Simulated assay, not measured.
Amino acid sequence: MSEIVIRTASARQGDIARRAEAMGVDDVFISDLVETFYARVQANETLGPVFEAAIGDEWTPHLHTMKQFWSSIALNAGTYGGRPIPAHHKHLDKIKSEHFSIWLALFAQTLHDIAPSPEAAAFFLERAERIGENFQSILFK
């Protein structure tokens, strides 16, 4: 019979930090990922206008929020407290289901180009795929 092990939140946080460090993931990488990815989004002929219509000249706050979001996912930082579905739902006149495959392809290419390790790329891509699937299932049901 296996023994039940109860771990503290700080022990779990330490495990997450060690795993991230082993993959080469830290706040600097997350910042680079967000900045590089969204520069590509802005330059993309399909996604650029969609994001521009939604974000306008508020890119700095959006990038900050996205850094908090990914830091919370990868590092368990707890810095993101947003509600992404309602934020996207109010732009359904611009967002189409097919945009998610373009978004994901750009994200995957960005990870391929700058991720510090294959493990880091796989970690972020797996989560991005789940996020995209979740958004589509909620926004376009």
Results as ranks from 00 to 15, higher is better:
residue 97 S to P: 03
residue 17 A to L: 14
residue 120 A to S: 12
residue 106 L to N: 11
residue 129 E to F: 01
residue 55 I to A: 00
residue 81 G to C: 06
residue 61 P to A: 09
residue 75 L to F: 07
residue 90 K to C: 05
residue 46 T to I: 15
residue 125 L to H: 08
residue 89 H to F: 07
residue 127 R to C: 02
residue 127 R to K: 11
residue 38 Y to K: 06
residue 51 F to G: 01
residue 25 V to E: 09
residue 114 I to Y: 01
residue 10 S to A: 15
residue 66 M to H: 06
residue 52 E to G: 09
residue 12 R to Q: 13
residue 12 R to F: 13
residue 18 R to P: 05
residue 52 E to W: 00
residue 122 A to M: 03
residue 5 V to S: 13
residue 101 S to K: 03
residue 91 H to Q: 06
residue 4 I to N: 14
residue 85 I to G: 01
residue 134 N to E: 02
residue 77 A to C: 06
residue 71 S to T: 11
residue 122 A to V: 08
residue 85 I to Q: 07
residue 8 T to D: 14
residue 27 D to E: 15
residue 14 G to N: 14
residue 77 A to V: 02
residue 32 D to Y: 02
residue 96 K to G: 05
residue 24 G to M: 00
residue 58 E to F: 08
residue 129 E to T: 13
residue 88 H to C: 01
residue 80 Y to G: 11
residue 19 R to T: 13
residue 98 E to I: 13
residue 61 P to V: 10
residue 122 A to W: 07
residue 87 A to C: 02
residue 65 T to R: 10
residue 113 D to M: 06
residue 3 E to A: 14
residue 52 E to Q: 13
residue 98 E to C: 12
residue 137 S to Y: 06
residue 11 A to W: 11
residue 130 R to T: 05
residue 85 I to C: 03
residue 54 A to W: 03
residue 51 F to K: 00
residue 1 M to W: 02
residue 30 I to V: 13
residue 68 Q to S: 09
residue 106 L to M: 04
residue 48 G to E: 13
residue 16 I to Y: 04
residue 131 I to T: 10
residue 106 L to I: 09
residue 83 R to P: 01
residue 124 F to T: 03
residue 85 I to H: 05
residue 71 S to Y: 10
residue 112 H to L: 12
residue 4 I to Q: 15
residue 132 G to H: 02
residue 112 H to Q: 15
residue 121 A to W: 03
residue 24 G to T: 10
residue 16 I to P: 03
residue 20 A to I: 11
residue 133 E to Y: 03
residue 128 A to I: 04
residue 31 S to I: 04
residue 140 F to M: 10
residue 4 I to A: 15
residue 53 A to S: 14
residue 111 L to K: 06
residue 87 A to M: 06
residue 62 H to W: 05
residue 78 G to V: 01
residue 112 H to I: 10
residue 59 W to I: 02
residue 9 A to D: 13
residue 25 V to S: 08
residue 48 G to I: 12
residue 125 L to N: 07
residue 135 F to P: 04
residue 141 K to I: 02
residue 139 L to P: 04
residue 120 A to M: 07
residue 108 A to Q: 12
residue 34 V to C: 04
residue 62 H to K: 12
residue 132 G to A: 15
residue 61 P to I: 10
residue 77 A to K: 05
residue 88 H to Q: 06
residue 106 L to V: 07
residue 67 K to S: 01
residue 79 T to N: 11
residue 7 R to E: 15
residue 56 G to Y: 03
residue 74 A to I: 08
residue 51 F to N: 00
residue 21 E to P: 05
residue 37 F to A: 06
residue 26 D to V: 07
residue 18 R to E: 15
residue 97 S to K: 14
residue 89 H to V: 03
residue 127 R to S: 02
residue 88 H to Y: 07
residue 112 H to P: 01
residue 102 I to D: 00
residue 138 I to K: 10
residue 60 T to M: 08
residue 83 R to Y: 04
residue 117 S to K: 04
residue 14 G to E: 15
residue 76 N to E: 13
residue 118 P to T: 10
residue 77 A to P: 00
residue 77 A to G: 13
residue 56 G to K: 05
residue 49 P to T: 11
residue 58 E to M: 09
residue 76 N to P: 02
residue 46 T to F: 04
residue 8 T to Y: 11
residue 45 E to S: 15
residue 27 D to F: 03
residue 118 P to D: 15
residue 14 G to T: 10
residue 101 S to W: 00
